[in-house]
C-alpha cells in the first residue's frame, strides 16, 4: 500500500516550469594531477538523453563524479531537481564504469541488481522478497534473466555492463548518470542500452551518458555536452554537434589553463 503513496503517478509531461534534473553553477574541480574542470555551468533539459563528449582526460568521468559528490570540488553549486543531492538521492541512479569493481566478488548477477534497492530498503532492513522480484524484472529488462544465478565473473563484458544498468533501472530513478556504458560492449549489449535509453526518455526521464563514439551521437542522443576541461558547448544535438564545435573540443586542452593547473598543484604540494 505504501508503494502507491511513495510513487504518485504523474500524468503531466515535462513543463517549462519544471526544475532541471541537474544543474551546475560555476563548478571547478581540481584534484591532484588528474583532469580538472573549470567553471562548469550547465543545466540539463528534462526528458533528454545527453551525450557527454570530449577527448581523453577532458574530465567527463570527473564531471559525473563531481555531480554525485564522489570527488571534492573547489567551488560551485549543484542542484538536482532544484534541491540538494542528499535530499533526492533516490531519484538519481548512477552507473559507474564497469572496470571500477572486482568482478571476482562472490555475488550473483541477481545480488548485484538487488543492491540498487538497498537505498530504498534503508538501514539494517533485510532484503525483502518484493525487492528480489523487482530485481529479477530489471534483469529481464536487460535480457539477462536466465543469468540471474551466475556469479558475475562468469558473464561477458557486455553482460556485466547490463547488470550495472539493471541495478540502476531497478532504482526507478528520474535521472540516470552513466559513465561509459558503451565502452567495450558487444553489439547485442549496445542495442539493449540504446533501447533502454529510448524507453527511459519515453517515460520522461533524463540521462547523462559519457560517450566515446562520435559516429553514434546523432542516432542515440537528443542533446550533447561538449567538454574539454570546460564546457565548449551544450544543447540539442542538431544545434551544438557541429564540426566547428567538435574541432574546438578536440583541439587539446588550453595550454594556459594547463600551466595554471600545474602551478596550483605544485603550490598545493609545497604547503
Amino acid at each position: 500500500m505504501s508503494m502507491t503513496i511513495a510513487e504518485p503517478i504523474t500524468t503531466t509531461g515535462p513543463t517549462a516550469s519544471e526544475p532541471s534534473p541537474v544543474s551546475v553553477r560555476d563548478m571547478t574541480v581540481a584534484y591532484q594531477r588528474q583532469p580538472v574542470l573549470w567553471n562548469v555551468d550547465y543545466a540539463a533539459r528534462p526528458g533528454t538523453l545527453v551525450a557527454i563528449v570530449g577527448p581523453n582526460g577532458a574530465g567527463k568521468s570527473t564531471l559525473i563524479k563531481a555531480l554525485l559528490e564522489l570527488v571534492p570540488r573547489a567551488s560551485g553549486d549543484i542542484e538536482f531537481f532544484g534541491q540538494l543531492y542528499r535530499n533526492v538521492r533516490q531519484r538519481v541512479a548512477y552507473v559507474p564504469q564497469r572496470t571500477s569493481v572486482d568482478w571476482d566478488f562472490p555475488v550473483t548477477a541477481w545480488d548485484v541488481v538487488t543492491m540498487g534497492l538497498y537505498g530504498r530498503l534503508g538501514w539494517l532492513r533485510p532484503v525483502t522478497r518484493a525487492a528480489r522480484r523487482q530485481s529479477l524484472e530489471a534483469l529481464e529488462q536487460v535480457g539477462l534473466a536466465e543469468y540471474a544465478q551466475r556469479q558475475i565473473s562468469q558473464l561477458s563484458g557486455g553482460q556485466q555492463q547490463r547488470v550495472f544498468l539493471a541495478r540502476a533501472l531497478v532504482q526507478n530513478a528520474d535521472l540516470y548518470l552513466m559513465d561509459e556504458p558503451f565502452a567495450g560492449v558487444d553489439a547485442a549489449t549496445e542495442r539493449t542500452i540504446v533501447g533502454l535509453l529510448r524507453t527511459l526518455r519515453e517515460a520522461g526521464k533524463t540521462a547523462l551518458v559519457v560517450h566515446h563514439d562520435l559516429q553514434s551521437v546523432r542516432e542515440y542522443f537528443t542533446d550533447v555536452l561538449l567538454l574539454n576541461a570546460r564546457i565548449i558547448a551544450a544543447g540539442p544535438v542538431a544545434e551544438v554537434f557541429t564540426d566547428e564545435n567538435l574541432r574546438r573540443t578536440y583541439r587539446g586542452t588550453l595550454p594556459l589553463l594547463d600551466q595554471i593547473g600545474h602551478q596550483m598543484t605544485l603550490a598545493g604540494q609545497s604547503r
Binding site: 554525485l68 538519481v92 559507474p96 571500477s100 569493481v101 572486482d102 543492491m115 538497498y118 537505498g119
Partner: peptide, 15 residues
C-alpha cells in the same frame, strides 16, 4: 556487502 563490492556506488547512494 555493498561496501565491499562497490564503494563508489555506496558513496553515491549516500551510505
Amino acid at each position: 556487502a555493498l561496501l565491499c563490492f562497490d564503494q563508489e556506488y555506496a558513496l553515491a547512494g549516500g551510505w
